Simulated assay, not measured.
Amino acid sequence: MTAPHDHPAPTTRDVADEPAAGPVAFPGAAVAGGLLAVLLLVGCGLLVRDLLAEAGVIDGDTWVHRAAVALGTQTWTTWMWAVPIGCAVIGLGTLWLALKPRRRTHVMMADHPIVWTRPVDVARRISAAVSDLPDVRHAVTVVGRRRIRVLVTATGPVDSERVAQSAREAAGSAAVAHRIGVKIRRGVRS
């Protein structure tokens, strides 16, 4: 018989066979939501100020009530078209921010579909591997969507095919671009 304070043992499962959603960038709608929250807080502050003025805690007239009365007595004029047009533009912009796809921030490792890495980490790995080649003084790598660019500063003759092969091997199973561009600066001495 088990005691009431005993908990069942947790079960483990392998998630390697399950599809994993890739990491994506911060949603643009969050920024718009933050701005809307600030505007609502300002509105709440105005209402609290009017409540204090109505209660006699502070001197002065209520601002929100005065603005509502002033707007209620207005008649339609051509400048007022700016308000619905502005509201439509803001609404469409917020809708676009909510629906636009977020860009991927990581690349998948082909041999492990649940493991992701940043493109900058792949670039650092390639730069380190290329820097270990003979006569290579320094290497800078940029991993883009379509290609990988490797800029090599050499102190002697360096084979660009060997640099490209080293970059391919260093990228390993990262699902990055297969086109590798190599640019070599020759004759630079330390």
Score class of each variant (00 low, 15 high):
107 V>T: 10
29 A>K: 09
79 W>Y: 02
50 D>K: 06
146 R>Y: 10
29 A>G: 04
105 T>G: 03
30 A>E: 04
150 V>C: 01
96 W>K: 01
29 A>L: 08
75 T>Q: 13
143 V>I: 07
156 G>Q: 04
155 T>C: 00
124 R>C: 01
64 V>Y: 15
123 A>D: 08
83 V>T: 06
22 G>V: 09
82 A>D: 04
148 I>T: 12
126 I>R: 03
136 V>L: 02
80 M>D: 08
129 A>M: 00
81 W>I: 08
140 V>K: 15
81 W>N: 01
98 A>W: 15
25 A>S: 13
100 K>L: 12
64 V>G: 12
138 H>F: 03
86 G>M: 05
91 G>P: 01
31 V>W: 15
88 A>N: 00
99 L>A: 12
113 P>L: 06
87 C>N: 00
149 R>F: 04
137 R>Q: 12
69 V>S: 09
77 T>V: 04
160 S>A: 14
71 L>E: 14
149 R>K: 06
160 S>Y: 06
50 D>L: 03
119 P>Y: 11
83 V>W: 13
161 E>G: 12
113 P>S: 11
79 W>K: 07
156 G>Y: 05
45 G>I: 03
111 D>Q: 11
37 A>H: 04
143 V>K: 05
40 L>F: 14
73 T>A: 08
136 V>S: 05
126 I>F: 03
116 W>K: 06
125 R>N: 12
85 I>L: 10
133 L>I: 01
90 I>H: 01
51 L>D: 09
141 T>S: 08
68 A>R: 12
109 M>Y: 13
122 V>T: 11
118 R>E: 07
115 V>P: 00
32 A>T: 12
111 D>F: 07
98 A>Q: 09
136 V>W: 00
159 D>S: 15
71 L>I: 01
147 R>V: 07
155 T>G: 06
162 R>W: 02
154 A>P: 08
21 A>D: 10
135 D>P: 02
109 M>A: 07
46 L>D: 13
102 R>E: 10
115 V>K: 13
27 P>T: 05
140 V>L: 13
63 W>N: 10
34 G>K: 00
159 D>I: 14
70 A>Q: 11
141 T>I: 11
43 G>R: 14
153 T>Y: 09
117 T>Q: 10
97 L>W: 15
112 H>E: 02
139 A>F: 09
58 I>M: 10
138 H>A: 02
95 L>W: 14
106 H>N: 01
55 A>K: 14
151 L>Y: 04
89 V>E: 00
69 V>R: 05
116 W>G: 00
77 T>D: 15
63 W>Y: 14
125 R>L: 03
135 D>Y: 03
22 G>P: 13
96 W>R: 13
62 T>Y: 05
28 G>C: 04
154 A>W: 11
135 D>Q: 09
34 G>P: 02
156 G>A: 02
133 L>K: 00
147 R>K: 15
89 V>Q: 00
160 S>R: 13
66 R>W: 11
143 V>W: 11
46 L>S: 04
137 R>H: 05
105 T>A: 04
80 M>K: 07
147 R>Y: 13
92 L>E: 01
74 Q>F: 04
124 R>W: 02
60 G>P: 08
70 A>T: 08
146 R>F: 12
131 S>L: 03
46 L>N: 06
89 V>A: 01
34 G>W: 12
45 G>Y: 07
35 L>M: 06
117 T>N: 08
157 P>T: 07
